[in-house]
């Protein structure tokens, strides 16, 4: 079953002047069709302003579609009565680690979500411990978030979502403000949740290295889904990616350059190991 299903999803940001007349309309999502199966690891790529964040906010019912429909676990997000359910099913992690931590102690922050949905006190404690453990932050439970590194803060934010026992987590550029170590930490945690707990992951990013292990990739531009496929299918189209102002991983780029120079290297090389093998084959 598809945990997320978008059909002809449109979102327009309408700007009005002081009298309420429409000043400008910006189409952030333009008839998007998208499906995510339960347990998948999905990546959504796109440059800033491509509509990927707007899409993420629909999955969490923070924005309502202008046209079209989005179902999260079979529930229509535009229906008022579904909002709390949808938010519980599909948790959200944002870009800025500082602006999503509410409490001044790690464990209290993780408990915030369960408190909001009325989980009994004893259960909150169990959930907080479990979710902190799942992202490897249990020993920091009594720390102040201000003293943590960026990667640690993001892991606390992920634990905060996990404590609501979601089926799916949407991460909106969770690593954009982190250093390389923080980025690795967060990705490792996310992958583990996907593999060990079967949580569906929707990772929104513009770092190409982060999507190599995804099950499926969507590329967005001008509010539309312009490419879709496995990472290998996507990265074998270096030129098209560049047109959408995106990069490819360094290995893919090098492989592509070598192929253009006449070497017999297969399309869609993603990792160093693959390129080493391809080059060694030629050398033999």
């Amino acid at each position: 079953m598809n945990i997320i299903k978008a059909r002809q999803l449109v979102h327009e940001y309408i700007r009005r002047d002081e009298e309420g007349n429409v000043e400008s309309i910006q189409t952030a999502l333009d008839h998007v069709d998208l499906d995510v199966k339960e347990g998948q690891f999905i990546a959504v790529l796109g440059h800033n302003g491509s509509g990927k964040s707007t899409f993420a906010k629909h999955v969490n019912a923070l924005l309502a579609p202008t046209e079209g429909t989005l179902w999260v676990d079979g529930k229509d997000v535009s229906k008022e009565e579904n909002i709390l359910d949808v938010r519980q099913t599909a948790g959200m992690v944002f870009q800025n680690p500082d602006n999503q931590i509410i409490a001044s102690v790690v464990e209290e922050d993780v408990g915030f979500g369960p408190e909001n949905i009325g989980v009994p006190t004893e259960d909150i404690w169990v959930r907080v411990a479990d979710s902190l453990k799942s992202v490897g932050m249990l020993k920091y439970r009594n720390h102040s978030p201000n003293k943590l590194s960026g990667g640690q803060k993001q892991r606390v934010a992920i634990a905060g979502v996990m404590a609501m026992e979601p089926k799916c987590i949407v991460l909106d550029e969770p690593t954009a403000m982190l250093d390389p170590n923080g980025r690795k930490e967060v990705l490792r945690a996310v992958k583990e949740l996907n593999q060990k707990k079967g949580i569906t992951i929707i990772l929104i990013t513009h770092y190409m290295e982060e999507v190599v292990d995804a099950d499926y990739v969507y590329v967005m531009d001008h509010g539309e889904v312009v490419m879709r496929g496995t990472p290998r299918e996507i990265f074998s189209q270096v030129g098209t990616l560049k047109e959408h102002h995106l990069d490819v991983p360094q290995m893919t780029l090098l492989a592509d350059l070598l192929r253009q120079s006449g070497l017999n290297i297969p399309l869609g090389v993603l990792t160093r190991e693959e390129l080493v093998d391809a080059v060694m084959k030629i050398a033999e």
Binding site: E108, G111, P114, V119, T121, V128, G160
Partner: peptide, 15 residues
């Protein structure tokens, strides 16, 4: 909001 905050109604307490 994303973490289901909707005021004090129906909230439980961790502590």
């Amino acid at each position: 909001e994303a973490r289901c905050y909707h005021g004090g109604e129906g909230r439980t307490k961790m502590k």
